[in-house]
Write a protein that binds this DNA or RNA. Sequence first.
DNA 1: GTATGTTTCAAACGATCGTTCGAATTCGTC
DNA 2: GACGAATTCGAACGATCGTTTGAAACATAC
Lengths: 225, 225
Amino acid sequence: MQAPPAAVSALPERSRATKQRLLDAAERLFAERGFEGTSLRAVTQAAGASVSAANYHFGSKESLLRATLLRRVEPVNRRRLERLDELERGAGGAPLAVEAILDAFFRPTIEVRSASAEGAAQYRQVAARLYSDPPEIVSALARDLFRPIRDRFVVALARALPQRGHDEILVALHFTVGVMVHVIAGHLDPPPADDGAAVRLSDEALLRRLVAYTAAGVRACGAGA
Amino acid sequence: MQAPPAAVSALPERSRATKQRLLDAAERLFAERGFEGTSLRAVTQAAGASVSAANYHFGSKESLLRATLLRRVEPVNRRRLERLDELERGAGGAPLAVEAILDAFFRPTIEVRSASAEGAAQYRQVAARLYSDPPEIVSALARDLFRPIRDRFVVALARALPQRGHDEILVALHFTVGVMVHVIAGHLDPPPADDGAAVRLSDEALLRRLVAYTAAGVRACGAGA
DNA sequence: GTATGTTTCAAACGATCGTTCGAATTCGTC
DNA sequence: GACGAATTCGAACGATCGTTTGAAACATAC
C-alpha cells in the first residue's frame, strides 16, 4: 500500500508513461461510453497496463476520472482568464465589447479543438460530460472548476452592459454556456446533416458564428424582461 | 416467454399500474444516476415490483430506457409541430417572425416543466440525457425523434430569414438546441447561485428570455460570416 | 368451481464489476 | 553487482449486474 507519487514530472520515466497512457485511454473511453459505462478493466487493457497499476497511480476509478477531467479543463480555463486579462489590460480601464469578452470565452475551447495533439481532440466530449454526467463527483468538479471562470466573466459582462442587472447577466451567460457545451459535445462536428453531407466549419468560422450568436443573445436577453 | 402486450390502454388495471410505476421509477432514477449508473434492481425496488416484472413488460433494460424517453419526448415534439402549424395557418402564407418560431420551439418544453404532474417535472433531465448519454440507443433515438422537428423548424426559419443560407440556419438552430438542452438539463433550475440565493425565474420570464436570446442569436449568426 | 391466459415473484445463472494482496519486476543509487 | 524503493502484475475477493426460469397469484370467461 504505497502512496501515489506527488508530482508527475519528478518521476521515473516508466511510471510517467504508464500514468499517461492510463489517462489517455480513460479519457477516450469515458468520453465514448461514459463513466459508469466504462469498466476499469477496459481502460487498463486499452492502456496496456494492469488494473492494479491504475489503482496504484490513482487510488480508485473515481480519482482516475477526476484526473482525466482536470488535465484538460484546467489549461482551457487558465487560458480563458489569461485572454480576458490581456484584453482588459489593453483596454486601459474601459469596458470591453461583449464580442471581445465572448471571444475570450470561446477561443480556448476552439483552440484545443483544433490542436493537432490527438489526445486533445477528445477534450470536447470530456468537457461536455462535465455538464451532463450524473455522478456527483463530476457535477461537483464542474462547479468547482467553472465557478471562478463564470464569476470573472460575469463581472466583465456587467461592465460591458451597465444597464443590465447581475441576475440578467447570469442567465444570459448560462444560455451561452449551453451553446458552448452543445458545440464542444461534438453534436456539431459531424453536424446534423440534412442531405447526408456535413456542415464542416473551419475553426475560425465556427468561432465567428459562436461569438456573433451569443453576443447578440446576451445583448438582447433581458431587454424586454 | 409471453409476448409483452401491445397497447397500454387496453390492459387490465393491475398490469397497467405496474408498468406505469416502472416507467416512473425508471425515469426518476435514469435522470438522477444515468442509464449505466442505475441498476434494474434499483428501478424495480423503487417501483415496488420485481425484476422479472420489468423484463416481462419491457423485455430488457434498454427497452425500458427507450420507453421512458419516448413517453416524455413524443408529446413535446408533437406539441411543437402543432404550435408551428397553428402559427403558420394564422399567418396566412406570410413568413413568421423568428420570435414566433422560437416560441413554438421552446414553449412545449417549458409547459411540461411547469405542469403539475410530478412525473413530468423530471422531463428536463430525461430530455437532456437524450443529448449527452453515451449508449448508442440514446443518441440514435435522439436523432430519430428530433430530426423531423429540426427539419420542420429549419424550413420555417429559412422563410423568416430569406437572406440566410440553409447551412447558416442549421448552425444557428444547432446553437439554439444547445441553449434548450442546457436549460432543461436543470443547470438553471437551481441555477448557479452566487451569494447562495437562487435566480428563480417564472416560466413566462424564462420563456421570454430564451426567445429573446436565441432570436437575437439566430438573426445575428452568419451576418458577418 | 374449472379452465385459460396474464401477470408477478423468488431464486438462481453466468458474467462482470471495483478493489485488494503478495509476489515479481524494474528503477535509482551505491 | 547489490540494495531499498518504486512500479507492475496475475490472481482472487466479495458484490452486483442483466437476464432467465418455473412456479405461484391473479383476472376472466365458461
